[in-house]
Amino acid sequence: MARLVTFFIMLFFWVLISGMFDAFHMTVGALCCLLVTIFSHDLLFYGRPDLSWLRDIGKIMGYFPWLFCQIFLASLEIAYIALHPRMLDIIDPRLVRFRTRLRNTLSRVTLAQSITLTPGTITVNMAGNEFTVYALTQHAAEGLPGEMEERIARALEGD
């Protein structure tokens, strides 16, 4: 089952990238996808042979629009700071440490990536359930982990 899904995902990518639909290119594509499937079918579904991986991707898609809105708002704030003539008075960089209650690895990685993607905060280190975050302003530091963690927990862990 995992091999079949891997094969079709690979074939979808081949068609998407190549865009040639004659017999030669499709045959070569199918052969390549077959080889990749035989060699590395256990990489895409690492540790989980069922299809729950695809379901998680679907759930993450519902989380993306909210993340994009957050990125936009935070970007406006950073743009204001970058263009401010007395910038050094506004910024106040600091390291923040907090513990997360997310349990599985995928949701922790999603949280770390989301924190880095949101301007104003960068994940420096993630050891176990302890995150070290570098925040540019006090306002950005206060917003951690907050709503982002709740939304990821709702999207990926089903609480």
Binding site: A74, I78, A79, A82, L83, M87, L88, I122
Partner: peptide, 26 residues
């Protein structure tokens, strides 16, 4: 352009990363 101005104006390495990250992402 804001991201480029940001990486020139911010005072230290870590805050420059904020400007660069915005540039990439948004």
């Amino acid at each position: 352009i804001i991201g480029a101005v940001g990486i020139v104006r911010f005072p230290d390495f870590y805050s420059r990363l904020h400007a660069a990250g915005k540039c990439d992402a948004l």
